[in-house]
Amino acid sequence: MNDVKDRVQAALSQTGEEPLIEWRSDRKGVLTGWCRLGEAALILPAAEALVGLEGRLSTITAYLTDSARQRGVREIAYHFDLDGTTLTVTIELPLEDARVPSLTMIFRNADWNERELMELYDIQVTGHPDPRRLFLDKSIEPAAFERLIPFSTFTNGAASKALWNKVMTMSGTEKAA
């Protein structure tokens, strides 16, 4: 089984599920794989299986789109690199009290990614060795993205408004054509 598709399929089936993987090849022949796990906790065995394929954790994307919110879920996509092929494994979590296991024991570079999950989203990472804030100043409330998304309801253009008021009053009428 030299084909990366077969190897990934076999590896992920070690989770006890037979996940459906969608493979796409771009015009240069670069392959990306996309799959969803039935249970969030399966990300741990999935990661263990992928490390066996010399996989590397590229990054982790948490997101909360309007459509997912309507379904009552949030999503996290884990992006793995397999020597140039990118595999995205997505899990779904509840909106409230979302928890994922830390992958730091398998991929130590999950560390910062998971700290970001905790400070930007309302997600708990269980078993994280160092769950401190990473980027956000202590004066900023936690789960910053959570409060600010969706953006349709968030219109904090206060700084812009103040500046433009000055621009229009100080130069607006003076230069009227």
Binding site: K28, G29, V30, D83, G84, T85, T86
Partner: peptide, 8 residues
């Protein structure tokens, strides 16, 4: 090198 591993 991504330019080799995933050419774009």
């Amino acid at each position: 090198d991504v330019r080799k591993k995933s050419p774009y």
